[in-house]
Design a protein around this nucleic acid. Structure first.
Lengths: 250, 250
DNA sequence: GGGCGTCGTTGACGCAGATCAATGCCGGCG
DNA sequence: CGCCGGCATTGATCTGCGTCAACGACGCCC
């Protein structure tokens, strides 16, 4: 389970504090837990305790963090880079169910086995928690459990939005929604801009939106011809989406 | 959030006990909480306490249990009938994210607002819990919270499976998966058979699978011509799916 | 520098499934 | 009984997107 949401302004301060390095005197000097998602519920000493459990981990692009069906031994907190989460069909068809950015947790569902495969899209840095230690830690912290549950509910709601998108929206609507969503997420982790990077490949985008690479490519070209987006020079993976909000119509 | 899964044989006994009427001396004589999903974690006295919180509720077909975006004041436990859960686009396009059968909980995500709309497909009987009372009750029961969280994780996993289905499977695969899934769920709530009712309309099925009614109808006809399913005489909404397992290929 | 593999774009074409339309089957109701 | 409105089926046709194929732009390695 990836946790990205929910945010609200009331928590912004707590978040800012929470996102600063907290591992200075912990077991791993360079592991900075970005507990963006959960921090609102954490006391300082709890933070310290939590980070004692974590270990720094880095992954090269295309490296696998964990695989669908494997015993869920670890949780991860992404601190840098992008991770794709997907399910596959035996014949190779793939559905990406989400992208995890800095601050997102993976595996918070605390299931026995991973429900999806997680792969690094870009080089990734993450904090790793042993599931057993994590579970043991939170087991007598009802408010933390409540908070996790709250996030699970939000995560589910996002998944349902994605179902609506996959089942009922056109290619153009899918792309527009994807870009706007990505922009909103970048904004939350501190890089607010109308110009956004697309670190993932066209194939990834296609597998996320239930399309083909050709359709993704054509739709992006069309949007840029219509001046709805602007493909920033020198980067097929950098877009300016200033005028995309015209397409919102949520 | 609907909770249907997960089951395992080890819990079957506890479940059987749990599903018997437990409201005899409670506030509502005819409200029978079917805590199929959660019962494994409930002690007898907890059961009694929980059912004290519940009130019987009935809904005519097409009645709304709750609406997307409304303040989430209640939880429901369906005891009879079928409920559809959906999200809508402003232009009327609809995505059904799930059907709730007897034993399923609605609203267990405990979010402030409902993320989907819930409507009775058939006449429905349900136990209603005030959210505040429910939350208050479970708040100091960590093992219950853990269990709820576990279900949330499983629910999410099901949603992700549905994403894969919506994004990457053909019409025929969608229908086959839907029928097999429905059969499996009926089996769990006690009506195990290769002949299953389809209480929902073609439009509902279409909106669940991201198709149109015509495609649903044609695909069902095709499957029955191929002898893969059998449309039981005297019921467009009754199918025999004896030989559908050929199509599984999960 | 040159070969080569990966990635993205673009065009031509085909098809699964959407759309439009007609018909039949009930069930409810005056 | 006969009318009517909702639902399912079926056919004809259309089209959005998939498929197949060619090509250019990079980046990498020898």
């Amino acid at each position: 389970m990836t946790l990205t949401e929910p945010w609200n302004d009331a928590r912004a301060d707590a978040r800012k504090r929470a996102c600063s390095p907290i591992c200075e005197d912990g077991g791993c000097a360079d592991c900075k837990v970005r507990t963006i998602s959960v921090c609102g519920a954490l006391e300082a000493e709890e933070f310290a305790a939590l980070e004692q459990l974590s270990h720094a981990a880095t992954f090269a692009a295309k490296a696998m963090l964990f695989e669908q069906g494997a015993v869920a031994g670890n949780l991860f907190n992404v601190t840098e880079g992008v991770v794709r989460l997907y399910k596959s069909l035996p014949d190779g068809r793939r559905q990406i169910v989400g992208f995890a950015l800095a601050g997102d947790f993976l595996g918070l569902a605390l299931m026995d086995r991973y429900g999806v495969t997680a792969e690094a899209v870009t080089p990734v840095k993450a904090c790793r928690f042993a599931r057993s230690a994590f579970v043991h830690y939170i087991d007598d912290k009802p408010h933390l459990l409540r908070r996790l549950h709250e996030f699970a509910g939000h995560e589910l709601s996002l998944a349902q939005d994605q179902m609506l998108l996959l089942g009922r929206r056109s290619a153009e609507e899918k792309i527009a929604a994807f870009l706007l969503n990505l922009q909103a997420r970048y904004a939350r982790i501190g890089s607010s801009s109308v110009t956004i990077p697309l670190p993932m490949s066209r194939q990834d985008i296609a597998d996320y939106l239930g399309l083909t690479i050709e359709t993704v490519s054509r739709t992006l070209t069309k949007l840029s011809r219509d001046k709805t987006i602007l493909i920033v020079p020198d980067g097929v993976r950098l877009l300016n989406i200033e005028r995309l909000d015209k397409l919102t119509a949520a």
